[in-house]
Design a protein around this nucleic acid. Structure first.
Lengths: 111, 111
DNA sequence: GTGACAGGTAGGGAATTTCCTACCTATAGT
DNA sequence: ACTATAGGTAGGAAATTCCCTACCTGTCAC
């Protein structure tokens, strides 16, 4: 189903190639495979495999248009990462603002 | 070339075991290896390996205390994930309000 | 139809991951 | 010093990943 398990999403994001594909789709919008693949020095079948992983994670979707297939970024799957990350937020906030501000925020801004 | 920091972080997060370790450290605070390992049905050396991956990604740090080693969550590394994720935020916002925006744009097209 | 193009699938090999058992190191308590 | 405990390292098997070449499918143009 399209209920992309967080498991597959995190596994998909482990590859720099696949993260770069997501960035390209984010910055340049939906594109056919050819255009995406031009940025990578690997054989097309290898690239196809990366697209499959991204698709099965729900991170991208494909739309057939003639003999091209447009790939587009699907934000919902990335939102799962954001949701996983949210409960950790206070830990980098501690790091970035230091212990004193942490103690302050615990007094007034605990959420 | 040495593996970049974000690269190791994403690779570390690909394992459900390692994500669970981070959750445990987040919810129960710094703990010795024994206490963490109790939650996983695997041999200790295997678990040690997971800790090594987390350590090399900068996601946890260890403090020696007697013959125990306290592992603690390091938020700074997770912040790298948040920074990577931030530019994608508008894509899941679009998704969450997608239906309304779709209907709105259809109205504009037909007017 | 034939040919060219877009992009996928099949199968395989090298590298990596993940788990294991066996062994080593360091510290605490006696 | 001796023993038990905490936790790591060494080395290896099985599974997975990532890339390759070769081939197949579907669409467009002629």
């Amino acid at each position: 189903m399209e209920t992309s398990s967080a498991e597959r999403v995190f596994a998909a994001l482990a590859s720099p190639v696949r993260r770069e594909v997501l960035r390209l789709l984010r910055d340049a919008g939906p594109q056919p495979v050819n255009e995406l693949a031009a940025h990578f020095a690997m054989a097309r079948p290898s690239f196809s495999e990366h697209l499959r992983v991204l698709r099965e994670a729900g991170l991208v979707s494909e739309t057939r248009a003639g003999r091209q297939r447009l790939y587009r970024l699907e934000g919902a799957a990335l939102y799962e990462v954001q949701e996983w990350l949210n409960p950790f937020e206070r830990f980098w906030r501690e790091k970035l603002t230091g212990l004193r501000e942490l103690l302050d925020s615990l007094d007034e801004d605990e959420s």
